[in-house]
Design a protein around this nucleic acid. Structure first.
Lengths: 353, 353
DNA sequence: GGAATTTACGGGTACGTACCCGTAAGCCGC
DNA sequence: GCGGCTTACGGGTACGTACCCGTAAATTCC
């Protein structure tokens, strides 16, 4: 019942190099106090024997705690989308707590850039070794990660990204392709090439980096497949339902012949509610995210497809990426695109966020 | 930088119970040599303090190795479906090797029940603490797990199951719902209620437990949504392409008006090849599994949808379920249904098996 | 009632790594 | 040659748990 493969450890390396364990340890951790010759010899042995440190023993012996800060939008009554990443983060935390990793969440208000700045400052005031954030506000995020960079703190983006920022990695959707897929699915609601499409963007913030990618992918599909369907886009900047209703009523008045609706984010339930109210529940409707409200309309058939990018797993993987870097000192993929999942009323019950 | 939360361990419990660490250890591991009174007191303290053993230290101190046996169909030139679960198993193995878990795979030939029996016997001859298997042959599997049960070995089913067998858990698809979803998607290729559907089952073995569930779900959808489309089923027992071609040619001759095709397993590439040969690549075609051959036809548009149940994750989760039981002594879900994923030419690139 | 056995428990070492502390050797200036 | 200082290294303990071994006390046996 003994472990068959006798793993070689620092002790064996020390023996072969005719030095003490402490010296090997110094080499492994790049600490000072080792002659060049000894250091080289030990490094050669490490290479040669393919030494793999025993993480269990390492973490057990180390009395250090690794602090990971999380900076995410707070769950609000407007959207509870961010519950899911937080669940994933909690799951990761439970898994690696044993390894001495502590996760500290900070929340900001999506309607208040100042709250982001405040929380960012609060993070930097504490001892912290890695950061996971959703760079919802580009300006503010840039300022924050600038500071992280100076302190050599690794930071991970989830859900959305800012290009070329030396982030450890991005974990989230490939928005262009996500829009492309939505278009493909929408065509099942567009039997004729003259059927009109309405793209609805409901968002308080004018997002000029992420949203355009979705629309670009969406339109690309029509272009590539030579579909001439007219595509109309409307922007709704007030997210409360009455405003949405107003705007949609106006749009419908202007375009009474819309055959299929595409909502570019998780606010699709509002549109579903609107369509039901107008007795148009049978119109083809696609939107985003596995939220209870959306699932309700999906079950009824008002929403035909939901696209989802596994927000929970984004949170989980985000923390794990930092863990891999900080504890295992292993590399991580620079860009980890989430799958673009299709949810219908027939498979939602088994979906794992 | 010290760990803030001073975890309570055996030492603290021993102190409070006025006994030695060794006695606490005996209680924790249900070993003999502790008086009833002492045992009770220690158990109370464990409850009260919510003692969580330090897995790191536990696995480090234990010189025991846990052996997990894997019993799966071999990858053959007929199908390499089983590569995926094996990848997942390897991934799990790498992750928990540090904890002293060794995974030993055994492969059998899907066309040879005797090979299953042989490998099963081989497993039981070795030291083994848990088994992960695909119960492809019902009779033989039952005999094998009977023996496991007697030895109190936990065993996990993946991909398919046998009901009521005291297995630790089942990790795999909900086949009824999977068939149901396929039907829903297929309707996008059936604009008229008279359009004919061809269900193709290509399999050497007559599967009388798993396959019928798919078809049942498939037909249920049509029934529930009051669709009158004629559904024709053909069974092909010779899986080599020439035979498939013959049978399909015959079927097509008999039913020249088939509008949509549904292949009930991963052999859908054969049907795609056939349809291309007949210049019928535009027919609606749905099948199973993320295999290179299938993806090739998906990209070209010959296959419209692939349904997939994350085979790699099944392998991964299967091993992890045993790990949770054997190492962490934590509970696992009895039935873990995989998501029913929809893959199209627009999202296959980001799919994670 | 004394020997043999069993019961109930404690001491202590090991797992592989991290890191503190001590020290011999080498070097410097004067 | 001596004090002071740096460099290079080893001894040893700790992390929290597992488990071997030893032993006093309790129990059984004849």
């Amino acid at each position: 019942m003994k472990k068959d493969k006798e793993m070689i450890g620092v002790k064996e390396i020390a023996r072969r190099a005719n030095v003490s364990i402490a010296t090997v340890d110094r080499v492994i951790h790049n600490r000072t106090g080792v002659s060049v010759k000894t250091r080289r010899k030990i490094n050669e042995l490490i290479q040669e024997l393919d030494y793999q440190p025993n993480i269990l023993a390492s973490r057990l012996a180390s009395r250090k705690t690794i602090h990971v800060a999380i900076l995410l939008p707070a769950v609000s009554d407007e959207t509870n989308f961010w519950e899911a990443p937080l669940r994933g983060i909690r799951r990761a935390e439970a898994e690696i707590k044993q390894y001495g990793v502590v996760v500290r969440p900070y929340f900001f208000d999506l309607n208040d850039k100042e709250s982001f700045r405040q929380q960012a400052r609060a993070i930097l005031e504490q001892e912290v070794h890695g950061v996971l954030l959703s760079p919802s506000f580009v300006e503010e995020s840039s300022a924050f990660i600038q500071e992280c960079k100076q302190r050599a703190l690794p930071y991970v983006f989830i859900d959305s990204t800012i290009p070329k920022q030396d982030n450890l990695c991005y974990i989230g959707p490939h928005l262009f392709q996500s829009g492309y897929l939505s278009a493909q699915l929408l065509t099942y609601g567009l039997p004729n090439s003259t059927d009109k499409v309405l793209v609805v963007n409901i968002s308080r913030e004018v997002d000029n980096f992420n949203y355009p990618q979705i629309e670009e992918g969406f339109r690309s599909f029509f272009k590539e497949t030579n579909r001439a369907n007219p595509i109309v886009r409307i922007d709704i900047r007030q997210t409360a339902y009455p405003s949405v209703q107003d705007e949609l009523t106006r749009a419908l008045h202007q375009h009474p012949d819309v055959a299929a609706w595409f909502v570019t984010n998780s606010r699709v339930a509002s549109v579903a509610r609107f369509l039901e109210g107008k007795g148009m529940a049978d119109k083809f409707l696609i939107g985003y995210d596995y939220l209870p409200e959306n699932i309700r309309y999906l079950k009824k058939g008002t929403i035909d497809f939901l696209i989802c990018h596994k927000p929970e797993e984004q949170g989980y993987r985000g923390v794990m990426a930092l863990y891999q870097t900080l504890v295992l000192s292993a590399g991580v993929e620079k860009e980890y695109f989430m799958p673009i999942d299709i949810i219908t009323r027939s498979n939602y019950a088994f979906y794992r966020n």
